[in-house]
Amino acid sequence: MNLAQQKRLSFAALMTGPILWWILVLLVPYVIMLMISFYSKQFPFHVPDFQFGNYLKIFDDPQYFQVLLRSLKISVLVSLVTFALAYPLTYYLVFKVRSHRVRMIIYVATIIPLWVSYLLRAYTWKTILGTEGILNSFLMWIGIIDEPISLFLYNQFAMVVTMAYIFTPYMVMPLFASLEKIPRNLIEASKDLGVGRMGTFLRVTLPLSVPGILAGFTFTFCLSFGDFISPQLVGGPYSNMISNVVATQFGIAMNWPLGSALSMIMLFIVVAIITMSDRFERAGRLDLN
């Protein structure tokens, strides 16, 4: 066996597993889902078909469009809140904390909730935000309110708070990586040339951290867009998200074709967002050169 053959053989040996795996658990299910999205429902089952009725229904019946819009709104809000929290925190960590040790301790403390079960963390917010919860008890104790406020739990506010808390690490990690990579001498150069703190931040640090921001937004947006636990746990009557509707179609409604069509639309939105963020990032890179 010559060297080239050996190389090809070892490459084949290496790649066969992953390629088979990719085809089996990713490509085939997507194709099946796409096919079912054109099927017709025939309660309690569905029959093979090729028609666009399921897609038309999603755009025709306001209930699906409303839920889609609500999910987009919630995901954007979650991304904005996590960004507003994570950027200053990460900036402080990278540029202000001198000790490497302290920096790592705070960083790990920030992302450690990832190791705690999602359900547990969401339940925790129930005990904090409830009518007889910790927040209300505290506000009554310090005398700001006399009666417990019911506006904290079982609504979209509670969902945004819970998801923002749960997904903050996904914003912090890419931001940390991109801020840490910024060469300090660029910032020093900017200051040497007489640009103030704010100017340096806006013209050097912020533009150079755009890849991290985009990655963080993409993560938090896609994760919140697909979330269906927090609407069930801390959401109220107006909190149904698109993933809840999909789960219902595959569950009690027994309408797999409609559920598949909704999933394809979700997939399209998520892929569009990822593509867009990729484009933005490339565009940013070109500007710097």
Binding site: L3, Q6, K7, S10, A13, L14, M15, G17, L20, W21
Partner: peptide, 24 residues
């Protein structure tokens, strides 16, 4: 070296195959 690469790739491939088999 070529040798270490092929040993590595083959052991990786075996690992992947085992993982796939286990999953199935």
């Amino acid at each position: 070296t070529m040798k270490s690469l092929s040993v590595k790739t083959i052991s990786l491939a075996v690992a992947a195959a085992v993982a796939l088999g286990g999953a199935m």
